[in-house]
Amino acid sequence: MLSRTANNLFWLARYMERAEATARLIEMGQRMALLPGPKESNEWRSVMMAAGAVDAVDGDKAVSEARVVKTLLLSADNPTSVRYCMERARANARAVRTSLTQQQWETLNDGWRRFEKMTTSEARKNLGDHLDWVKTRTATFRGATEGFMLRNDRYDFLHLGGYIERANMTLRLLDVKYYVLLPETEVVGGGRDHYQWRSILLALSGHRAYHHNYAGDYSPWKITDFLVLSPRFPRSLKFCYGGIRLHLDRLAEHYGERHECCKTADEMLERLNTKDLGEIFQSGLHEFIMGAIGTTYRLSDEISDAYHF
């Protein structure tokens, strides 16, 4: 397969996952901002910081919902905005149209101009509906991929991009909690704190899955372990790296060569397998997240180098 085809498939999946994750970030910010407290504006700031939109945060000034919607939903220039990601996903899909099924293409092509002329005030009126639309589009594309795509190297590159981005964004969603708590540590362990942790589960559609494992115990360290170490939850870091290693192994078998990216994925999985319950939270959640994000970025670069894109 041509390296440019692999590149387009890899980034198509990354942009789709990023669009969904950004929508989930905004949704989580909405839930957190509804909570009363002395730092109501901080929730929106944490969303911007976790999305990597640091340039859009003006010093210590309050970050409004309008600013978040403009930057993370409607911006045509911000690489983490929903509009940008959906447009780039479709552009990548056009470049590899013959590698996709009809169902995949129709999913990407339907309503892709939705946010092109929408104003911030218009978006805010029905923000929940717009976020649900994004999540439905990405879920439909994922279903079309699993239901109709041939299981070859194209399938593997598509899934590699998806798992890389999903791992990165799960870590960023967890890091929202760090930014929220940083200026108001007195609320740790309180009702507001627990609601914020539950909001992270809701943002990742993991609330019911978590309940099956831990019932009504929403201890922060258990939620952390679930989102990082669960081998069964599809958005956990460990599950994502398991998927990455699976598709790297398939590509290595297909092309008859293993690369440095295979070693990096193996090392990360080994690191996760040796973590004891509660260890990540006790030893420093933010430090672990930053290290894992760095590893994920490095892995993405190594995959690009290995397959020449």
Rank of each mutant, 00 (worst) to 15 (best):
E253K: 11
R14C: 08
N152S: 06
T101R: 02
G143P: 00
G294S: 08
E165W: 03
R192P: 00
L229Y: 03
E122S: 09
T170D: 07
F148Y: 13
A252E: 04
R250Q: 14
T98N: 14
E267N: 14
Y297E: 05
L160Y: 09
L204D: 01
Y178C: 00
N8H: 15
R83K: 13
A144V: 05
E20K: 04
A56N: 01
Y241S: 13
V47Y: 02
L204Y: 03
M118F: 06
G128V: 05
P220E: 13
W197Y: 05
V57S: 01
Y155S: 05
G256S: 07
N152H: 08
A292F: 09
T224I: 10
Y307Q: 03
N42T: 06
T274Q: 15
L246N: 08
M28I: 10
A91P: 02
E287C: 00
A89I: 09
V187H: 05
M149W: 09
E257H: 10
C262D: 14
F148I: 00
N126G: 01
K39I: 05
L174A: 04
V69M: 01
E146T: 03
F115R: 05
R90C: 02
E40I: 09
S236M: 10
E87T: 11
D225L: 08
A95N: 13
L251Q: 07
D217G: 00
H194N: 11
Y218S: 03
G189W: 04
A215E: 06
F141V: 09
R137I: 14
K135G: 04
L34C: 02
P220R: 10
S236L: 11
P79D: 11
F10P: 00
V188M: 13
E270P: 00
L182F: 05
T120R: 12
A292N: 07
N8L: 07
I200H: 01
